[in-house]
Design a protein around this nucleic acid. Structure first.
Length: 728
DNA sequence: GAGCACTGC
């Protein structure tokens, strides 16, 4: 069994906290100075780290030859050189030593040396992410293998690699590299590699024991992304194989070097919670049933009673924002002349960039800015000059609901925020001075909130993960997870993969399933792609699914220019519906891209109300998918031209579960699952009655909507083998 | 007649 150790208390240098208050009667209070407080109360654990002497560090020189890297040939320090080496930028080395983690360096290295698994808890900014890999390399713990450091986001992986490469006095891609989708910088010399968690999960498919790595550091583990959870579960399995007892020596297993795992996680900032509650006043204990109305009243209390300073109100969604905007405007127009005017700025992701930008312009003198935002303002953007925050305590959350062992749907419903969100929201006030947070909920409600968000593995569709695991000969049901996925979600994933032909009726992976897993796509889209190779329309299907798997929407939603947007959209419209409309858009975009400059392209997209980010990302994805096709000897150029028949038939193969027939009463009934679904109003087929539809996804908001819809003859659906089996 | 926010391959 793997030995495990937990190291706690890599704390930041103590810093003054912002002043907050809550529950309606704000009052300033300087927070007491206190370094740390852990949820489990074991305050003194950090001494374990702090106590250790920094005795003369003995970097074991790894006998690594320092060939010049192929990609970025520039000077590079040989591995194993001490961090104190004079060849490195002295100011960077000084900075490294000033990091909170530095005093614990030897203790950390020793504990990791002695244990198979180490859990390292430290706050953001403690330097653990940049320093620990370097400490381990310098101490020779990497042996002849690599140290991988996983990150949930690409930008973190690339920027951390740049930072650590600089600290090592080398260029990125030499001793220190990174690997993310669409981008890689590494060479045979690379020993520390920053990778996205998804990249390492994908690497498992080709190298199930991750044999190139001797240390894997899973960073930001507290974020509990689906891929991190999947990785952690797999690392346990891998360690069993690679760190087998020594009696296996001489046999197969002995060829494998042991694997060390380091899990790094931020604390939940427990002390910030408690400080927050020391100033909890005793008024405002009334539950506000209508948070929009409460926000309205709280805003005008602030506006008439409090000194100048902008207000940020957190609301769940666009609908509430628009309704509150109207009410505030109405009352603001009736204010006495001696009260400052109100400048209302709505803020949510779907708002066109031109209207988003006004929240960043300085508030005109004699005015108070009031920003109405979704949780986009919680982390993604920082708005300067906010003095007051009003927190409704609500947000919207997307969650997958599995039903009847299959055919579930995504929901988007308003719910209570988490405690960590509440803290985050309050922290948006007074970033440049003192600030106040007004919470429209009681202290008791706060205590009832979940501390953190539920891990993704409990909220998402697991179809893609299950397919990847099946390729590794594993199973969602058997793997040892920190949090077990929900049974019905697993059942639903199994059913989907069976219907797609990726699994047989004994839940075993089929050759088709293995083929599908090679593509970085959701299984239904991968299935459509494979089908297109048999139907001679790979070029078109590749284009359509590239757009569907891009992270943003193709069409820009605008309120003001709704008619103009609809006019522009009509130019691309295809009678069959949204999928071929997407194809028309990309074909037009490619023509423009061929003749126009970058600016011309941007201009065209703006005029056509198209999201250029979506299109350029789709082009990237398409190029990657073409590469995979080429490797699998699939002709990605095979084109059906303007014949939509094979294209729709290929899509039907992937979207088998997302099919519905028109009923006699004019509604659509899902073929599998039997729910009544409506065509989403954003679809080109909204309000149209066609005998049968396929769709990209089912979303439950105000009712169950099908999004991304195309009309197909009923026969296309009936000829799918799975349906024939059901009938016969 | 409707669109929380991110992220990953």
């Amino acid at each position: 069994m793997a030995k495990a150790s937990i190291l706690k208390g890599i704390s930041n240098a103590p810093q003054p906290h912002r002043r907050h208050s809550s529950h309606g009667t704000p009052r300033q209070k300087r927070t007491p100075k206190r370094d740390h407080a852990w949820m489990d109360g074991s305050d003194d654990d950090d001494l374990e780290v702090k106590r250790s002497k920094k005795h003369a560090s003995t970097p074991s020189k790894s006998s690594h030859n320092s060939d010049q890297p192929r990609k970025k040939p520039r000077l590079s320090a040989p591995a194993g050189k001490s961090s104190a080496s004079s060849s490195k930028d002295p100011s960077l080395q000084k900075q490294r030593k000033e990091l909170p983690i530095y005093t614990g360096k030897d203790a950390i290295v020793n504990i990791i040396r002695e244990n198979d698994v180490t859990v390292l808890i430290g706050e953001t900014g403690s330097g653990k992410t940049t320093q620990v890999p370097q400490y381990l390399l310098e101490a020779g713990l990497a042996g002849s293998g690599m140290i991988a450091v996983t990150q949930p986001r690409k930008v973190a992986a690339t920027s951390l690699a740049a930072r650590v490469a600089a600290e090592q006095g080398t260029s990125v891609g030499a001793l220190v590299g990174y690997s993310v989708r669409f981008d890689e910088a590494s060479s045979p010399e690379t020993r520390i590699k920053y990778v996205t968690d998804g990249m390492l999960v994908r690497e498992l498919l080709g190298d199930p024991l991750l044999s190139r790595y001797s240390v894997i550091i899973v960073d930001e583990a507290h974020e509990r992304t689906l891929r991190t959870d999947l990785l952690i579960a797999n690392l346990k399995t891998i360690q069993k194989a690679r760190n087998a007892p020594t009696d296996a020596k001489g046999k197969g297993a002995a060829k494998l070097t042991p694997l060390k795992v380091v899990i790094m996680s931020a604390t939940l900032e427990a002390e910030k919670f408690s400080k927050f509650y020391n100033n909890a006043p005793d008024s405002a204990k009334i539950v506000q049933p209508d948070y929009v109305d409460a926000a309205l009243r709280t805003f005008f209390q602030i506006h008439t009673d409090r000194p100048q300073g902008d207000v940020l109100i957190f609301l769940p969604g666009q609908e509430d924002i628009e309704s509150l905007e109207k009410s505030i405007q109405l009352y603001a127009n009736q204010l006495p002349v001696d009260v400052p005017g109100v400048l209302i700025c709505p803020m949510y992701a779907a708002l066109p960039p031109s209207q988003q930008s006004k929240i960043f312009s300085p508030t005109p003198s004699g005015m108070r800015k009031c920003i109405l935002a979704t949780n986009i303002a919680e982390t993604s953007i920082t708005i300067p000059g906010i003095k007051y925050v009003i927190d409704t305590g609500k947000c919207k959350e997307k969650r997958y609901v599995a039903r009847h062992a299959g055919s579930g749907y995504d929901t988007l419903l308003t719910r209570d925020i988490t405690q960590s969100s509440a803290v985050q929201r309050a922290g948006r006030a007074g970033r440049e001075g003192s600030g106040y947070c007004f919470r429209l909920y009681t202290e008791e409600s706060f205590r009832k909130m979940p501390i953190t968000a539920e891990p993704e593995i409990r909220r998402c569709t697991l179809t893609s993960s299950l397919l990847q695991l099946k390729c590794l000969g594993q199973d969602l049901e058997e793997l040892d997870f920190m949090d077990k996925p929900d049974e019905s979600t697993v059942a639903s994933a199994l059913k989907t993969l069976f219907l797609l032909g990726a699994l047989d009726n004994r839940k075993a992976l089929t050759p088709l399933g293995r083929q599908m897993a090679a593509f970085p796509l959701e299984p239904p889209l991968a299935r459509a792609l494979v089908a297109s190779t048999e139907m001679g329309c790979t070029a078109e299907v590749l284009t359509i699914i590239s757009v569907l798997s891009a992270s943003s929407h193709l069409f820009v939603d605008t309120h003001d220019a709704r008619d103009a947007a609809a006019d522009a959209r009509r130019k691309f419209r295809h009678l069959s519906g949204d999928h071929l409309t997407v194809l028309n858009v990309v074909r037009a975009y490619e023509e423009v891209a061929a003749s126009e400059s970058k600016a011309g392209r941007r201009d065209w997209c703006r005029k056509m109300f198209l999201n250029e980010r979506c299109l350029s990302e789709a082009m990237n994805i398409r190029a990657q998918l073409r590469d995979v096709c080429a490797r699998m000897d699939v002709d990605w150029k095979a084109s059906a031209g303007d014949n939509e028949v094979p294209i729709l038939k290929a899509l039907v193969r992937g979207l088998v579960e997302n099919t519905a027939f028109l009923q006699a009463d004019g509604s659509y009934k899902q073929v599998m699952g039997s729910s009544i679904v409506k065509i989403h109003p954003s679809s080109s087929l909204a309000d149209k009655k066609v005998p049968a539809i396929i769709f990209d996804e089912l979303v439950y908001t105000t009712s169950v909507y099908a999004r991304g819809v195309s009309a197909v003859p009923r026969s296309y659906i009936a000829e799918v083998p799975v349906f024939q089996a059901r009938v016969g």
